[in-house]
């Protein structure tokens, strides 16, 4: 549905987007992740025809955005970083304007009502956008991108300015959209990508540094497994015993303690599941294990790891 090939955008010697290529299939939700100034917005602006690229191609539905912008733009709904809303229009006037400017040919009243319903802005439909709060304005911006049911929807930081309940609602909305739309969203909130996206593209300084399925992304930075184990027993002895288990690389007291129990973080060799050995060793000493959990790397850690690795590679 979306095809980007060797896309470059430079401002003089500064490369905002530096030779990136990726494809997004139909019905996929792709998260575009990266620190500030990584080139996320630039890529999206090129894809939607707001900016032009220095070189390379961007195709939407097989149509090149530079060669045939008129047809390509019909396929795209876009929410830019700042919702492009006119403060002196009411929500209804604005959505009608968007409906007309996009040359939609649907049942207008029904279509716009559905959009107001899913974005939960029906109660403010007669109010001036200028008088709405940031969260509502953002939702009007999202509504705008949905007008005309475009097959490709591009959101640049869709949940900025929303309260936690709204964030969850919008995420659900995006997930539902993914069933019959192609969605690209950019964010620097990692948990959001994890919650919503099928695939993650990490971009830094204009280059793609990771492009993986969400569930695989942690595998990109394969690491030793870690466990948090909570044991009733004397701290020093327990720690020594833990260290003695074959396959343990490191043991660290987390400092967390209850009346008679301590929590340790143990790091096991790659591919070595030492939970059984752990159980037997502790039971030998009559130190009951009252808690054991595997510490999975969360996306934040993965992200920082990948960024660091990228930095090192450049040096």
């Amino acid at each position: 549905m979306i095809e980007i090939t060797n896309l470059v955008k430079n401002y003089g010697s500064k490369f905002a987007v530096d030779d990136i290529s990726f494809k997004v299939g139909k019905g996929e939700i792709v998260g575009f992740l990266g620190p500030n100034g990584a080139g996320k917005s630039t890529t999206m602006n090129i894809l939607t025809g707001y900016l032009s690229s220095t070189s390379g191609e961007a195709k939407v539905g097989g149509i090149d955005i530079l060669e045939n912008p008129y047809e390509a733009k019909k396929l795209i709904g876009f929410l830019p970083e700042q919702p492009p809303v006119y403060p002196d229009m009411t929500v209804d006037e604005y959505l009608n304007f968007v409906y007309e400017i996009k040359h939609c040919k649907l049942n207008r009243d029904k279509h716009l009502m559905e959009i107001r319903m899913v974005t939960k802005i029906d109660d403010v439909r007669h109010r001036l956008i200028g008088n709405l709060s940031k969260g509502y304005r953002q939702r009007v911006g999202i509504a705008q991108a949905l007008v005309g049911n475009p097959p490709v929807i591009i959101f640049d930081e869709p949940t900025v300015g929303l309260d936690p309940k709204q964030i969850i609602e919008i995420r659900n909305l995006i997930r539902n959209l993914g069933q019959n739309h192609t969605v690209i969203l950019s964010t620097h909130i990692l948990s959001e990508v994890q919650a919503v996206c099928d695939r993650i593209v990490i971009i830094n300084e204009g280059k793609i540094i990771a492009d993986e399925k969400t569930e695989n992304i942690t595998r990109v930075v394969e690491e030793n497994r870690k466990y948090n184990v909570k044991v009733c027993g004397p701290q020093r002895e327990v720690q020594a015993a833990l260290n003695g288990i074959p396959g343990v690389v490191a043991v660290e007291a987390t400092g967390e303690r209850d009346a008679d129990s301590y929590t340790f973080q143990i790091e096991a060799e790659k591919g070595n599941d030492l939970r059984k050995a752990l159980f037997y060793t502790m039971s030998e000493h009559n130190w009951p294990i009252i808690g054991l959990e595997a510490v999975g790397m969360n996306l934040e850690e993965v992200f920082i790891k990948i960024m660091d690795a990228d930095l090192n590679r450049r040096r």
Binding site: I76, P80, P84
Partner: peptide
């Protein structure tokens, strides 16, 4: 200034 031009420039209008 208000960045509303983005909706004009990303819509099918020349």
């Amino acid at each position: 200034r208000a960045k509303t031009e983005q909706i004009l420039m990303t819509s099918p209008v020349s």
